[in-house]
Design a protein around this nucleic acid. Structure first.
Ligand SMILES: [Mn+2]
Ligand SMILES: [Mn+2]
Ligand SMILES: [Zn+2]
Ligand SMILES: [Zn+2]
Lengths: 128, 128
DNA sequence: CCGCACAATAGAAATGGATTTCATTTCTAA
DNA sequence: TTAGAAATGAAATCCATTTCTATTGTGCGG
């Protein structure tokens, strides 16, 4: 699996992004500064590659639009998403991984992955 | 918020369902046994009502199709979803609720809701 | 009963993110 | 240089969900 030109452009955008970006966000950003940047299809394909390479994490907020962000290779984390200002706090540890052993014993279930995102109101919005 | 005729039909179907059902599953089931059962639009609207009444839980498996199931009023739970046979184990306790207090203190974040689903291979499929 | 106001409903059309298709271009390795 | 593989873009398509609009059902005052 190679790091194609498209992938590199996507990485560039993600490096400068301040929060979670959708495929269309990324594409829009690219095209904004360069008319002949890769097309949306390529962005989707690049994201797919980057995710499977472990360089990028896909985040599912349950609103039908997947978001992406750079991560330390092979790692992942979860978020506290503010429903008021849409900002998100990046949690420093995954709560699920600790439970894997217990779940495997209790249910005989082999965990491969998981979705976990938490919604609510952030500190800033609470005090306002 | 009333229990309309559509809502009742949806509840009926969910009572007999054995696993998570999508809106279209439910609609299909209805129409299968009665040509003039409520339309898909009504099913969606009924599910929306039932969810906000706390009688039905919406489950997001990240595949773009929301599923629904009956729950004890006001409660919710999470699942171990087998990627091989698509069956799901219903967990008996929510891991997140225990963490709310800690997260509120550490981040000043007020939790309102969350998504949590776990994927992997179930006992049955592992032994096969 | 009648007619009216309003809720519930159906079906069609619109929406929107994601994916597929396929012709074309670019890369890579003889 | 050249053939095959990989990458790409634009348009077409998919598909769950939402919106729109016309129709139907229901409760109620007269
Ligand atoms: Mn993050
Ligand atoms: Mn369940
Ligand atoms: Zn995790
Ligand atoms: Zn929970």
């Amino acid at each position: 699996m190679r790091l194609t030109k498209g992938c590199k452009k996507v990485l560039e955008v993600l490096e400068h992004a301040h929060d979670l970006s959708s495929a269309q966000d990324i594409h829009g950003r690219m095209r904004g500064e360069d008319d002949k940047a890769p097309g949306l299809t390529t962005v989707y394909r690049s994201l797919e590659s980057l995710v499977s390479m472990g360089l990028v994490q896909a985040v599912d907020l349950g609103d039908g639009e997947r978001r992406y962000e750079l991560v330390k290779p092979g790692e992942h984390h979860h978020h506290l998403v503010c429903e008021s200002c849409r900002s998100s706090v990046h949690l420093d540890q995954c709560l699920i991984e600790e439970l894997e052993e217990g779940i495997r014993h209790k249910y005989g279930f082999q965990i491969k992955g998981h979705i976990l995102e938490i919604f609510g109101t952030c500190k800033g919005c609470l005090t306002k």
